[in-house]
Write a protein that binds this DNA or RNA. Structure first.
Length: 647
DNA sequence: CTAGGGTTAG
């Protein structure tokens, strides 16, 4: 019944001989004798040029005029299938496209170039473009802008991009701002900054996008002052200008700037969009700025960003976790209609950081039940959960399962987690052995974990070995020396404590001052150990003295072992009482209503004395105190801490 | 049929 299809359809529309006979004969005919609209719709699933050609033949045989049979074929599909396969298929498509005039053919190809240029393989667009040029198909501004976009996304496409630039000049498209913008973007993203900047500087008619492209480039490379300079200079700003700056500040660890600019944006009356929301929430996460985070959350709800945008939700989860509100994070997570591996990993890692290891492991099971594939980050969270709970066997199992069951190659982070897990649990020798056998070179995180274990388990030898590597790997970090001298101090080896202090001095290192922040009504208050310049500091000192009396009644005795300075006990106590987290907590107690949780962010780890004091304070004042330190969260409630003193 | 901004760990 389909014998008529044995004739190549190409020959039906082509006067040339031989064209594609070889192709169509290989595949069995697939169309029924009578053609219906549904059959044509099914052509969207066709996957080879010859299948398309069969369909075309059918159309022609149906007696319709050529133009209508061409319009009945799904041209985007034809282009997708034919453009990059054999030359004959390409010219078949050309014939189909070229049934009308040259300009409409260009439009048809442009559409397909657009698809390819934003596909995962933009180089395909470049391949098609060279075919089109070779075949003499005309280019217009659209063509070139798609090709330039593809160049932007293809490594090593700079020479081609320059050639396209020449074509822009030759075809006299110089006055097209749109096209010039894609050119600027192409140069910037392919690393030819002088060319990008030159074009930018000489462009007579720049628009917001032109400025945004340059600003974005500078924010990406971390040249934030230049970005800011352009931002301040530009005649008008769009949401994207603000967002690019806010995101840039966030990425370069200037979350305060990010938040400040966000507020300026609000005053300027510019409506944030989803991307702005993500950027500012990330900054809030960094700062522990819960109040603003909550306000942005409300806004995201009102705009239904939370409903329709997974990334917004993921960032909300991260924000709440980093602000010490796991429950809130979990609520966002539970309300999500669809979740990505990022959502799961963030939530698992969040439970782990908050000492809710069981919950983290449970969530992983649920993740598997939901059919979601974990990635490397998921396992960092899981290993983290195990090491913070001392689940040695569980952690080892995850580590091997990661490779064996999920084919994930462990990265340095995973090794770091394992060393942390082993050494924290007291298996220092095994941890050392593990480092020796790792296929990758240990970094400062790995040795730092070993050093931490050495401190907890009072192993001087291991501490000394770790520090030898650490001074090589991370010479400017004073934290390691401090830990080492803690180890010596614990053992009463004061001459070694002094030796470490001399080492630091010789290397020009000073102990990083501890600081803690607490945010109230969207204002961040910072306290620095010993030398706070907070306007209310005197009140805070008085508040602490009062609190200290109550603590003493409950048996609080200062633990001065963490104070390494050479001074008498009384002086050491004074130093302890000026630790930043204590000051921030007192400030929080004095400035928030009864019963409200207090959230503190700290740059270093909580010292043992503050840890003990905070436990008591939570009991005496009946407040929940959440402290985010360098490593994890401590949630103090009713006299105990969520870390179960295992940290 | 066009250009520019975003999420998880350590």
């Amino acid at each position: 019944m389909t014998s008529s299809l044995a004739v190549s359809p190409f020959q039906v529309i082509s006067s040339r001989k031989n064209a594609t006979a070889t192709q169509s004969s290989k595949e069995p005919p697939i169309f029924p004798a009578s053609l219906h609209a549904t059959t044509i719709a099914a052509a969207a699933d066709l996957s080879t040029p010859s299948q398309l050609q069969q369909l075309h033949a059918r159309l022609i045989k149906s007696g319709l005029p050529p133009s209508s049979s061409a319009s009945a074929l799904p041209l985007p599909r034809v282009a997708a299938v034919c453009a990059l396969s054999s030359p004959s298929a390409f010219s078949y498509a050309r014939r189909l496209f070229g049934l009308a005039d040259a300009a409409s053919e260009t439009v048809l190809w442009n559409s397909h170039l657009n698809t390819l240029s934003s596909s995962p393989s933009p180089a395909d667009a470049l391949a098609l473009f060279s075919r089109l040029r070779f075949a003499g198909v005309a280019s217009d501004v659209f063509t070139l802008s798609f090709v330039l976009k593809a160049c932007s996304r293809t490594p090593a496409a700079l020479p081609l991009g320059r050639a396209v630039h020449a074509l822009v000049e030759k075809l006299d498209f110089r006055s097209d701002v749109f096209l010039l913008n894609t050119l600027v973007h192409m140069y910037a993203s392919r690393g030819d900054i002088p060319a990008a900047r030159l074009l930018f500087d000489v462009m007579p008619a720049k628009d917001v996008v032109t400025w945004n492209i340059m600003i974005t480039h500078y924010t990406k490379t971390g040249e934030m002052q230049i970005a800011r300079h352009l931002f301040d200079l530009m005649p008008e700003r769009s949401v994207r200008s603000w967002t690019a700056m806010i995101a840039g500040y966030g990425q370069w660890k200037k979350p305060r700037e990010a938040v400040r600019l966000f507020r300026e944006m609000e005053s300027a009356g510019v409506q944030p969009n989803e991307v702005t929301v993500v950027a500012v929430l990330a900054a809030c996460a960094d700062l522990g700025e819960l109040d603003l985070g909550k306000r942005v959350h409300e806004f995201a709800k009102r705009c239904s960003f939370q409903k329709k945008n997974v990334r917004v939700c993921n960032t909300l989860i991260d924000m709440y976790i980093n602000c010490g509100c796991v429950e809130k994070a979990r609520q966002v997570f539970d309300e999500m209609a669809e979740r990505t591996v990022v959502s799961w990993s963030a939530m698992i890692g969040g439970h782990a950081m908050h000492g809710q290891g069981e919950e983290a492991l449970k969530l992983f099971s649920r993740m598997r039940e939901a059919g979601m594939e974990p990635n490397g980050v998921t396992f960092v969270g899981l290993l983290h959960a195990c090491s913070h709970m001392g689940l040695l066997e569980e952690g080892k199992r995850f580590f091997s399962s990661m490779t064996e069951d999920y084919g994930i190659v462990p990265e340095i982070e995973h090794y770091g987690c394992m060393v942390d897990l082993l050494s924290r649990a007291g298996f220092l020798e095994e941890a050392r052995e593990f480092v020796r056998e790792m296929p990758v070179k240990a970094n400062s995180v790995v040795w730092g974990a070993l050093l931490g274990g050495a401190k907890v388990h009072k192993n001087i030898k291991m501490g000394e070995e770790a520090i030898r590597h650490l001074v090589e790997l991370d010479p400017l970090n004073d934290g390691y020396y401090v830990v080492l001298s803690n180890i010596y101090a614990d053992a009463g080896r004061w001459e070694d404590v002094a030796k470490v202090r001399r080492m630091m001095k010789d290397r020009g290192l000073k102990k990083t001052p501890g600081w803690s922040t607490i945010s109230l009504d969207e204002v961040v208050h910072e306290f620095v150990a010993g030398e706070s310049d907070h306007p209310k500091i005197e009140e805070v000192y008085r508040g602490w003295d009062e609190l200290l009396e109550k603590l003493r009644c409950r048996g609080y005795a200062p633990d001065t072992s963490a104070v390494l300075l050479d001074m008498d006990e009384k002086q050491k106590e004074k130093v302890l009482y000026r630790h930043s987290e204590k000051l921030a907590v007192v400030f929080g107690l004095m400035n928030t209503p009864e019963g409200r949780p207090i959230r503190i962010m700290k740059n270093l780890r909580v010292c043992s004395d503050c840890h003990a004091a905070l436990k008591l304070i939570s009991e005496v004042t009946d407040r929940e105190i959440v402290v985010r330190d360098r490593n994890r969260f401590h949630c103090f409630r009713h006299g105990s801490c969520s870390c179960r003193d295992y940290w």
